[in-house]
Amino acid sequence: MSVVPDTTTKITFTDNNTKFNTAGVQFIINPYDELSLTKALEITEKAGGSVTVATVGLAEADAVIRKALAIGANDAIRINANPSDGQFVAEQLAAIAQQGGYDMVLTGRESIDYNGGQVCGLLGALLNWPSVNVCTKMDVIDGKAHFERDIDGGRETIEAVLPVVASAQKDLCEPRIPNMKGIMAARTKPLTVVEPIAVDGFGQYNGFENPIAKQAVKLFDAQNAAQLIDALKNEAKII
């Protein structure tokens, strides 16, 4: 589970555009991970078992991890490191998954901050498990996993043997909201902090930039909408 800036955050950078400016930013559970958490709860409520949340992050992630426990996860593991890139994160999570005897590892389709979309496939390869990405349905029936997933230009349904890694796409389920009882229970649920394993570097973020601001909009009269088509054809030359 990844901890990300709230979706309404205005994105700015500091330190000469080398760092994301976290001043005043509210952090949330990555929306896709919220879906995978909810789905994991639905699956274990039906098929049995428990749900562990694993996050690579520093101590400030704890408040968001408690929220995941309030939603219903049984326990949580925080790998005490800065989640510097998707490959580093996947290596850490793979180390945890190897110890745990897990049947399924669910991730989000991507995190909404770094948009890597890598962790599901990386985990699959690191663990040598099958991986199924961008799932809009997930279920476990008679010890087999069933998925529906997006493919380019359509959808397909897939069966997989366990253990398996899968990533959540929008539409998978309605994310659960923590209730009072969950919030109380979360306070005493185990949140274990472990130190990261050593991993050779993959790369480094040198700097950031914002998209170039648009010039003022050119407006056309609603009575004369045909002028717009003319401008797209002859001025912008894109139709």
Binding site: P5, K10, I11, F13, F20, D85, I112, D113, Y114, N115, D200, G201, F202, G203, Q204, Y205, N206, G207, F208, E209, N210, P211
Partner: peptide, 20 residues
């Protein structure tokens, strides 16, 4: 080898050095 990639869901770009 530095690539430019989209981050923050369209609200930014990052320049990333690929070291391997």
């Amino acid at each position: 080898f530095v690539v430019k990639r989209g981050v923050f869901s369209g609200k930014g770009f990052a320049h990333v050095q690929l070291s391997r």
